[in-house]
Design a protein around this nucleic acid. Structure first.
Length: 456
RNA sequence: GUGGCUAUAGCUCAACGGUUAGAGCACUGGUCUGUGGAACCAGUGAUACGGGUUCGAUUCCCGUUAGCCACCCCA
């Protein structure tokens, strides 16, 4: 950095954006490890979609009246005339479901065995005011099961979420509701609207607006006066058609069967228009000091979404979970995150000849896939071991004049301080025996991360 | 979008309307070419930006920007 930069304005992060730093690495790897585990368990197929999409993909599905579309999208026009896509209005993807459904339609996944079970891990962008646990770019692990409307699928999506978070060490529950479908919901909205209209004067200003744009959203208003009015409001359950009611009851039965903790919440509507029937959220079981249960994600069924995008009918149900929220929850819950082994071996050298031989040994070990660290530019053994210690290396190899004469090398266990002389030629075999399971897992994880890096 | 709080080194924090803005941790080098988690010595490194009050501002005032938090909503 230049010193007196009075003239230069410091370039920094855009508001609400966060760097993911080395210090967050172990949390990400921990979560991604469990993601990989759960998607293997349930045979979900990987999908990722572009960050940039046409604006109407979300405007038509998430809904013009929703907060996401209405005020939170990064939306801009591509310059006209410089390319075939010139003049199009594009947005940074604010949520995953509509994008995945677009891909499902566009790639004819209807011709695969149904349902198609997909998962993704990708960044989302919403231009909200940043706050605790809320950023303008965040990452979601999402699951979408498309092509089947059986209630058991709804339950299964929730079961997957439940065991995923269980793997991570988080205890959660599902507020759950059914908001009906295209057949029966209009009647409920009518009933609700006329009830609220008659009491319009007592509603908060936001709700007066919602009453016109999206009456359902009045239901989850937090204002006390609105809540009071809502106590006697018509309830969606009473308006569900037989199909929707049966579907909902069946979902709950499946959840009961596996003792998945849920609680009925007849005011849960969610801020996205494409949902039908089942809607749910994923909240921490234990409330924080303020008595609130942190929300880790949400989901629901969207049987009409495909048609909204011009596709053939394809019912679906899905869920999105916020990675940053999950990591936050892991930290506050004090879940122990296994520490991360970056290097397996450190090579320390003493003397000119030893340095040469160590240089070669480093290359040899590396060629065989070992993760090797060194400090060849240092001559002091203390300094080298100190470095090895800071790197968290499990074993140090020490090579000096004496060892070269004897054809040996010293193997030092860094945690116990125990060390032994090993025949130089046998060192690889000895290492193979010593280095244990955890490192293998880290290698797997690392590969997974590289894939993801490519996407981000 | 509305409101509250904050802004000094990479981090945590100090200080004063007045000479050269201090400390701990971290970092770099050294003691250190035969043993790390330690000690000692040395070093790098900061008043967010702009304006005002003042002889003098890091300090007081205003604005901007950014951060944190709450509301709204959500992941």
């Amino acid at each position: 950095m230049s010193k007196k930069t009075n003239k230069n304005i410091k370039v920094q992060l855009l508001k609400g954006f966060k760097d993911i730093l080395p210090e967050h690495e172990k949390y990400w790897f921990y979560v991604v490890d469990k993601v990989i585990k759960i998607v293997k368990d349930y045979n979900l197929s990987f999908i990722n979609t572009p960050v940039l999409e046409e604006a109407q993909l979300f405007e038509r599905t998430v809904g013009e009246g929703s907060d996401i579309v209405h005020k939170e999208m990064y939306k801009f026009n591509l310059p006209k005339g410089d390319s075939e896509d010139g003049g199009k209005t594009v947005v940074l993807r604010p949520e995953g479901t509509a994008a995945v459904m677009r891909a499902y339609i566009e790639h004819g996944m209807l011709n695969q065995p149904q349902p198609v079970k997909l998962w993704y891990l990708m960044p989302m962008f919403r231009r909200e005011k940043p706050q605790s646990g809320r950023f303008r770019q965040h990452h979601q692990f999402g699951i979408e099961v498309i092509g089947d409307q059986a209630p058991v699928i709804d339950a299964q999506v929730m079961i997957i979420v439940y065991s995923f978070l269980k793997y991570l060490g988080l205890d959660i529950k599902f507020p759950v509701n059914s908001i009906g479908d295209r057949e029966c919901r209009p009647a409920y909205i009518n009933a609700l609207t006329s009830y609220l209209s008659s009491r319009q004067r007592q509603l908060c200003t936001d709700c007066k607006r919602r009453l016109k744009t999206n009456p359902l959203r009045v239901l989850d208003c937090k204002e006390e006066k609105c809540q009071l009015i809502l106590e006697d409001a018509p309830q969606i359950v009473d308006y569900l058609c037989d199909e929707c009611r049966n579907h909902f009851v069946a979902v709950l039965e499946y959840l009961d069967e596996l003792d998945i903790p849920y609680e009925l919440d007849n005011k849960l509507v969610r801020g996205i228009d494409y949902y039908e029937r089942t809607t749910f959220e994923v909240v921490l079981k234990n409330p924080d000091e303020d008595g609130k249960n942190l929300s880790l994600g949400g989901g629901g069924r969207y049987d009409g979404l495909s048609e909204q995008l011009g596709g053939r009918p394809a019912p679906g149900v899905g869920v999105g979970l916020g990675i940053e929220r999950i990591i936050g929850a892991l930290r506050t819950a004090g879940v122990e995150i296994p520490s991360f082994v970056r290097y397996e071996v450190f090579i320390a050298q003493l003397g000119k000849e030893a340095k040469k031989k160590a240089l070669r040994l480093f290359e040899d070990l590396k060629a065989e896939g070992w993760r090797v660290a060194e400090a060849f530019s240092k001559d002091s053994l203390s300094t080298q071991l100190e470095k090895a210690d800071k790197l968290g290396v499990q074993y140090a190899l020490i090579l000096g004049q004496k060892e070269i004469m004897d054809g040996t090398i010293i193997l030092r266990d860094m945690s116990s301080g125990m060390q032994e002389e090993v025949n130089f030629e046998k060192i690889k075999d000895v290492l193979k025996k010593r280095i244990t399971q955890p490192q293998v897992i880290v290698r797997d994880l690392d590969d997974g991360d590289q894939e993801k890096d490519g996407e981000n």
